[in-house]
Nucleic acid binder design. Sequence first.
DNA 1: GCATTAACCACAG
DNA 2: CTGTGGTTAATGC
Length: 226
Amino acid sequence: MSDIECKCCTLKSPATRLLSPKQLDELEENCLRIGFRKGEGIIKEGMHATNIVYLRSGLVKIHMKGPSGEKILRLSKAPAYLGLPTTFGDKVNQYSATALTECEVCFISLDTFRRLIYSNGQFAYEIIIDMSRLELRGFKRCVSFSQKHLPGRLAEILIRMSEEIFGSTTYKLPLTVSELADFISSSRESVSRQLSEFVREEIIMLNKRELTICRMDILRKISEKG
DNA sequence: GCATTAACCACAG
DNA sequence: CTGTGGTTAATGC
């Protein structure tokens, strides 16, 4: 099916490291690696879910259609499984995953993945841990966002991206202003104004997409205060 | 009442 | 796609 070497893959997930050589062979034979360009859809809401998706490299946004437009649920950085809940939980994808950068993705047939779960408990356990952590993080963000005002929500994602995705206080915003708004449940105008406000207060610097957090201490306070 | 927050609209780079 | 200004509804003091 492919010329991929799962056995030698340097980007194995913690779960996949627990597979036996034989199981890795099985994975290898039922795995398809595909590259995506920025902006391309990897998982599409409303489409039939037939594969487990493993993000080897790149950054992806997970998003879902709402009553009034798109809502970004989270960003997902490689290495990570994408859409386990939507693949296992329903025949139809309940949300989308779209590439924010160049991405490399492995599609693993659902049947194969299911067999690996049945036959290897440690593997399955790792998957459960992974999904549990995601759900916890989701809950936290949900609570946090719903009880913060715009400045707090914006401050929070700026910090989160800095820490969780880029590991730097300087980074190129992977989202447009409009997407930021979809992420923090606000309007693009409000986000635009708030960003300008942060710049005016010299908490951040921003030219084009290049963001620098100058005063992490203040940004933290704003995020905590809500 | 009066101030503040943030959404919606319109319009211009 | 962004940034601004005007307007407006909701909420707080």
